[in-house]
Nucleic acid binder design. Structure first.
Length: 673
DNA sequence: TGTAACTCCCCTCCG
DNA sequence: GGGAGTTACA
């Protein structure tokens, strides 16, 4: 048995960490040491002689898994990280990927499949859509994103399409038959191209376990399965766990129903609520001692979640004791909110709470735009999590497409994208070129046989030479070298295609740099699809110790994190709850849990801000909007907060003029009247 | 056949 | 504010 020193745990945490075999459910309120407990359980299992390579640890993000293993390994001192390195840790999707590459061959799956990210999947959906041509009905067919989310929700919730449409996409219900045909065609398109989308990773895993032999092998392969953030798993994921544990019942799940915020991805809160019924003999342990926040913050968050009708009742108690009441700040305008936040950030910074210990949270990524401009103007370094992904930027997708073609020449999506970059190549030539390549059995030399205007033919030949020289056996010098060679071809195109080539080239530099850490193209492509960098600066590598930056994050991306100071901005009706999520009571309840998650991130200072008045251009039809405070903090809850009101101090010179605006308007009209 | 300019419509949150 | 579809023109 390895040398083992467990962190100091309280009695409830210790019970969870050292529970025996069989199903275990830990209901862990916000800040109750969930990570610590799960990490301790991993360490405890290993200390009991369980082989780490026979433990599966499923987490919500890759970061969470790394953090968990880092903490678990501490229990074993210096040998820890080496000892626990063989644990199967990661998200459901990444573990599925690993299992399918190992065991997929048994059911005839090509182990060299490519993983499609959401945008690729949408594009493929679009291709199927065009091939089917549903335009005859006169009315517009749902757009590709909508089609993909309908598809994805059906798959992940295991609900029939009719029900999914009625409940979540009622405006698409008339297209039910067409959507069925589309989904069939989309599935075939994926098979032809040897690609799997995110949902396929889970689906194939689930169906792999439908084979009796494989199910037995996989049950026996893992002595223990542990799942974090169980409240955010969906029906398909729960079914996978059922099949993974049909023979061996050792399953530990941890979560908090009050923090379930992923129903848009078909998360089923019922998974955690009904776990004891679905897994008879479950040991249930509740963690209610909060180590994160001061009592006044908990008083407020307890009251907020208390208003939720369906939940496991629990009351969090703080060990941190007293502190300032959370502040509820009414701002006249968005500018006042920005001013307040920026000034407070600097104030806390001066008093010893550095930028790293502060975070600004928003419901939706773009609502931080105004604030970000001010942070930049004042030279306050920050990192943004959530919202537009690095990998969605056009130039990154371009470069990744080159790599994907090298890896899988049948990937027509990627090939088309590259072809369209060439001057003079539109949909028609790209289509012919793609067909020629696939007729040639995936040999890009076929590009040279295309008839097109001379300059286009020359470009095609150049591209063909580049690709074949990079795919030649024995020439691969690693992904970074591939990227370097691709860029000698692609960089000039960036100049022509984009107005701002320089920042884009810097992104490409970063991509090239991180790629050097990967031993193969396939690994690089898959890892980037399954664990995309959360913010651009993620790519810059671990920052040095004295770097200090403020966090700006969506509430969703803030899950599991904590800061001394938290500012929740735009807590106004229409934004939180989002006006797009007020369709039914369940959706409103999820918005309430979002507010709860946001507020429970704070350790010592919590500021909830809501501007009263918005000036909006473009995105909304009206030019301004008067908002009220979020309905989740009704009047009777205000006693939990310290109330404040902010307006920007504008000093107007007091001059008494006799001229009125109406006079000026009159004279202006005089010009043409 | 490709491209630029224009219109219309819809949008959140993420692996 | 941006993606997708349409139209006019090179």
């Amino acid at each position: 048995m390895p040398e083992f020193q467990i962190d100091d745990l309280n009695p409830e945490q210790l019970r969870a960490a050292s529970a025996g075999n069989g199903p275990v459910l830990a209901i862990a309120g916000a800040g109750t040491g969930k990570t610590k407990t799960l990490a301790a359980r991993v360490a405890w299992l290993v200390s009991q002689g369980i082989d780490p390579s026979r433990i599966m640890l499923l987490t919500f993000t890759r970061r969470a898994s790394d953090e968990m293993l880092r903490r678990a390994s501490r229990a074993f001192g210096e040998a820890g990280s080496c000892l626990l390195g063989s644990i199967w840790g990661g998200t459901f999707h990444s573990v599925a990927n690993r299992l399918l590459r190992t065991y997929g061959g048994a059911i005839g799956l090509d182990p060299n499949f490519t993983v499609l990210d959401q945008l690729d999947a949408e594009d493929l959906m679009d291709i199927s859509l065009h091939n089917l041509d549903f335009s005859s009905k006169g009315k517009r067919f749902p757009r590709k994103q909508t089609c993909l989310s309908i598809y994805s929700r059906c798959v992940n919730s295991a609900d029939p399409i009719h029900h999914t449409l009625a409940a979540f996409f009622p405006w698409c219900i008339e297209w039910e038959q067409e959507l069925r045909r589309l989904f069939t065609s989309y599935t075939e398109a994926k098979q032809e191209r040897h690609v799997l989308d995110y949902d396929d990773l889970l689906l194939y895993w689930f169906h792999l376990l439908g084979d009796e032999t494989l199910a037995r092998i996989l049950n026996e392969r893992f002595d223990h399965i542990l799942v974090d953030e169980y409240q955010d798993t969906n029906r398909l994921q729960a079914s996978i766990l059922h099949r993974m544990r049909s023979l061996n019942r050792n399953l530990t799940v941890v979560g908090d129903d009050a923090q379930s915020i992923y129903s848009f991805r078909a998360a089923a809160i019922g998974n955690i609520l009904n776990f004891p019924a679905e897994f008879p003999g479950t040991t249930v342990i509740a963690l209610e001692t909060n180590y994160r926040s001061t009592q006044p913050i908990l008083d407020a968050t307890n009251r907020i979640i208390e208003l939720s009708p369906r939940r496991h009742a629990k009351e969090l108690r703080s060990v941190k004791g007293e502190g300032p009441k959370p502040a509820l700040i009414t701002c006249e305008r968005e500018e006042d909110q920005t001013d307040f936040v920026v000034e407070k950030v600097l104030e806390h910074n001066e008093h010893g709470l550095g930028l790293r210990r502060q975070a600004i949270l928003v419901r939706t990524a773009y609502w931080s735009d105004h604030l970000e401009i001010e942070l930049t103007r004042r030279n306050i370094p920050y990192r943004k999590y959530g919202g537009l992904k690095f990998l969605e930027a056009a130039h990154i997708k371009d470069l990744m497409s080159f790599l994907r073609v090298l890896e899988n020449p049948r990937d027509q999506l990627a090939l088309t994208r590259i072809l369209r970059l060439l001057e003079g190549v539109g949909p028609a030539i790209a289509k012919r070129a793609c067909e020629a390549v696939s007729e040639f059995g995936g040999d890009v030399a076929a590009l040279k046989s295309i008839t097109a205007p001379a300059p286009v033919e020359a470009e095609l030949a150049k591209l063909a030479n580049l690709i074949s020289s990079l795919t030649m056996k024995g020439t691969s010098g690693g992904v970074a070298l591939d990227i370097e060679r691709i860029r000698s071809f692609y960089d000039p195109l960036v100049e022509r295609l984009y107005e701002n080539p320089d920042p884009r080239k810097r992104d490409l530099d970063q991509l090239e740099q991180i790629s050097s850490a990967y031993s193969s193209r396939q690994l690089f492509l898959t890892e980037l699809a399954l664990d995309p960098p959360q913010s651009t600066s993620d790519l810059a590598g671990p920052p040095s110790k004295d770097d200090d930056w403020l966090t700006v994050s969506t509430i969703h991306s803030a899950k599991g994190c904590e800061w001394d100071v938290v500012y929740l901005i735009h807590a106004s009706d229409g934004i939180l709850p989002s006006d797009l999520a007020t369709g039914d009571a369940d959706q409103i309840e999820e918005e309430r849990r979002l507010l709860y998650v946001a507020c429970t991130r704070a350790k010592r200072y919590l500021y909830v801000l809501h501007p009263l008045r918005y000036y909006l251009k473009g995105r909304h039809s009206h030019s301004h909007l008067y908002s009220q405070l979020t309905r989740f903090i009704p009047h009777e809850l205000k006693s939990c907060f310290q109330l404040d009101r902010r307006t920007r101090a504008v000093s107007e010179p007091q001059i008494a003029a006799s001229l009125r605006v109406s006079d000026i308007q009159k004279s202006i009209r005089g010009i043409w009247e």
